[in-house]
């Protein structure tokens, strides 16, 4: 049996005295996409950020492909080279054009030659529908285009797992569709993805599992069909009524 891409065991995290994550258990099988949802403040973004070590945690373990993740800076760098992340507000590097945004990380961090990295970057930009935008700077791109460059940039590191932190929350309605299309094609191609989102349409359509979080705990964890048809908890029912308004 192959190990799951990510295994979270008994993970707890405090911000000061506030218990942000309470004894979380989560398994993301390889090739599957998982949606993390829940009311704001429920800890879903914090949990996601633990998965690539942007947040530290006090108790428990994150196991990537069978190996527990350490806390030393060296371990975290190694972890992040295998786990890509897409942010809510894109965080493209504004001093680099789109092509360099995508080509620089593998050049510096994977030791790719410049020509090789740029050829790969061009291919990835074409994959997200931005072949003609390689020489544009982030300031010249729309929100949806920026987010697609950010996805291409994350893919350039050839990650085993892709994390999305509310990737469409900062976008206008027209741009949301173009970003979701890219994400759907990635999920369909068998990428391992963990997505924090309020886009329940995306969850219903592509994800293999929905994890509903509430007050730092995993309240429900089930396939989308069941989650949307018959949520078990009262809190999840209230949440769904709100987001599907």
């Amino acid at each position: 049996m192959t190990a799951a891409a990510i295994n979270v065991v008994g993970l707890s995290k405090w911000f000061g005295d506030f218990l942000a994550l309470d004894d979380i258990a989560l398994t993301v099988p390889r090739g599957c996409s998982t949606v993390l949802c829940g009311p704001s403040g429920s800890g879903k973004s914090t949990l996601l950020r633990c998965l690539n070590g942007l947040e530290s945690w006090e108790e428990g373990e994150v196991v990537m492909s069978g190996r527990p993740v350490g806390h030393r800076p060296r371990d975290l760098v190694a972890l992040r080279r295998r786990v890509g992340m897409v942010f809510q507000d894109f965080n493209l590097f504004p001093h680099l054009d789109a092509l360099s945004n995508v080509a620089l990380p593998p050049r510096v961090n994977l030791g790719l030659a410049r020509a090789e990295a740029e050829a790969e970057a061009e291919m990835l930009l074409a994959q997200v529908g931005l072949a003609d935008f390689a020489r544009k700077y982030p300031a010249q791109l729309s929100g949806g285009q920026k987010q697609r460059v950010a996805i291409a940039r994350a893919l350039a590191m050839q990650p085993e797992v892709l994390l999305f932190d509310e990737p469409t929350s900062a976008l206008d309605p027209e741009s949301i569709g173009e970003v979701l299309d890219v994400m759907i094609s990635l999920a369909d191609a068998g990428r391992t993805m963990v997505v924090v989102t309020h886009e329940m349409g995306f969850a219903r359509r592509v994800c293999h599992e929905v994890v509903f979080m509430c007050a730092g705990r995993v309240a429900e964890c089930c396939p989308p069909e069941r989650f949307f048809a018959e949520p078990e908890t009262e809190r999840a029912r209230a949440f769904l009524a709100q987001v599907q308004y």
């Binding site: 690539n52 942007l54 975290l76 760098v77 786990v83 942010f87 990380p105 994350a154």
Partner: peptide, 12 residues
């Protein structure tokens, strides 16, 4: 966000 994005891409 810039430092986080760099860290998330495996920069030291």
């Amino acid at each position: 966000g810039q430092a986080e994005a760099a860290a998330a891409l495996g920069f030291t």
